[in-house]
Design a protein around this nucleic acid. Structure first.
Lengths: 295, 295
DNA sequence: CCATCTGATACCCTGAAAGCATTGATCGTG
DNA sequence: CACGATCAATGCTTTCAGGGTATCAGATGG
């Protein structure tokens, strides 16, 4: 028994006429009759009550007809779907992103992609930049939005945005009224910044911002999560340099200021070049289409 | 593509090894490899990423695997179920019965059958005896409980119970205190009885109960439903002769009395002898097993 | 009783698919 | 680095599942 036999059965069950059913199956009546007999023999079940004049379904045949309709439908669907998956119209795409990006490019990217590929299940996964890099090489993620951390030959990269860092502090902070803020003004400040192990690109941008002026920043706290950094700044434990897109989130009692010669960071969309997931390519295309001018 | 191909695919998807997968399919590796290639060619989809050292599923293959597992499961189930239906263990049984029987044998019959054949869907259908006869010959019912109306060569019959008729009347009716009630006592009474067209066996039993004494019963009302008869008696519009098993339903202000030489009616379970529904036979067997002594 | 319709049988033949032998690519190891 | 081992792919042969044609057999209607 296989699906072809089920199709033979369905043809006869629907026409109740061997000749016409055979015709529908594009074959002549004698082999068709044999196939029906074969089906009944292998199942050990009489499916049709027939003589040389009439053909009728037995109750077992009636029941089998419903099941066959089901199975054949699912069968067709499976064959159709696998083509859709291969074409990237259907399937799953595991998408990682860092928290910074959640407030800027990610919503638009996700929305546009979901509109253009509604049958692809987007699995969102917020991670730190380091975790993202690891998961991209491990294949746990299909694509991710992160900071450009330079050389990555096994990854394809689309530049999404170029973000300047800004400084945030409490409103009652002495620097809140200073006109220009640069490395010199921050020389004595307590800095809160993510550790290099968690966000290498961000941290090295901050470090080199100071080091080109020969200044060693006074980093007092190194929380891993951006969320925590803002909380600590709000408590007055220091100031922090954060991407401009996070500025839109005002926070209670916090103020954000521009920096002189502010460090820039590239926000990129990345995916392994060796990816086998066909859904990725249009995801990258959409990334390109929403590429933004630098802020 | 058919289910055999899906089985090949599943074997490889689960083992990720052509040799072992072929072995599982009881064949040698070369034709197995060709079949896999064939599947990919007809689907137009690469399902496996492979070289002479490693075999891995593509994302499309991964997706297809889930669908195949589904389809193959349903396929097996359909083949198994059709055998169960043919053996009477599964399927549907359309069971008709008259309202009189609903209070006596039907509940027990239905319960016992449902316990012994839980996968057979019992479709219950309450009808008048005449409707039941028509539906049995039309094949709309598989089996039914009704009054024995005599000759029926195309039906198999199991006697379930033998019921005496009793008389019901209002508690304040003059006959309520009379010791013996027979045709003579009812000569002047207004009788309420179902029409012969609806319940021939019941009505002819009532008629002959009087006619053997040369009495013509004074039937004033002929409602089709037993329910209505009882209501009309309660309103004082007459008395009625009803099966003893209905006595258990007391009704407001009504009283039921035995009759002298009470007419008897056979309650039978019937099914067409030509029935193709394999579920019927055990239904009839259970009917035999609950055969009751006459009341 | 014959013409006709329809499903079953008899017989033949083709090609899908299985087996065997072998090739070619990729590792691991001495 | 060469050699052997492993494993998928390919070439060739063979077989039988399943299709085709011709025909039979039972039922029905004029």
């Amino acid at each position: 028994m296989d699906t072809r036999h089920m199709q033979y059965f369905m043809a006869l069950a629907e026409t109740l006429h061997f000749g016409r059913a055979a015709e529908r199956m594009n074959m002549s009546q004698p082999p068709f009759s044999r196939q029906i007999a074969m089906i009944e023999r292998t199942l050990g079940v009489k499916l049709f009550e027939r003589n040389s004049r009439n053909v009728a379904l037995t109750p077992a045949g009636e029941y089998f007809m419903k099941d066959c309709r089901n199975v054949l439908g699912q069968f067709e669907e499976a064959c159709r779907d696998v083509r859709l998956v291969a074409s990237g119209m259907k399937g799953e795409l595991r998408f990682g992103f860092m928290m910074h990006a959640a407030h800027s490019v990610v919503p638009q990217l996700v929305q546009l992609y979901a509109e253009s590929r509604p049958d692809v299940r987007l699995v969102l996964d917020e991670r730190t930049p380091t975790e993202i890099d690891e998961m991209l090489v491990a294949g746990t993620l299909d694509a991710a939005v992160t900071f450009d951390c330079g050389y990555a030959p096994h990854l394809q990269t689309v530049l999404l945005a170029r973000e300047r860092l800004r400084i945030i502090m409490r409103k009652d902070h002495p620097l809140a009224t200073v006109g220009q803020i640069g490395p010199e003004e921050l020389r004595a400040e307590k800095i809160i910044a993510a550790p290099a192990a968690t966000a290498p690109a961000l941290r090295s941008a901050i470090n080199s911002y100071f080091s080109v002026r020969g200044i060693v920043p006074h980093v007092v706290l190194e929380p891993r999560l951006q969320h925590t950094i803002i909380q600590l700044v709000a408590k007055g434990l220091g100031v922090a340099l954060i991407p401009a897109s996070l500025r839109t989130e005002p926070g209670a009692g916090l103020i954000s200021r521009a920096l002189t010669d502010a460090p820039q960071l590239d926000v990129v969309l990345r995916a392994p070049i060796t990816t086998k997931n066909p859904a990725v390519s249009t995801f990258m295309e959409i990334g390109k289409s929403i590429q933004r001018t630098l802020l």
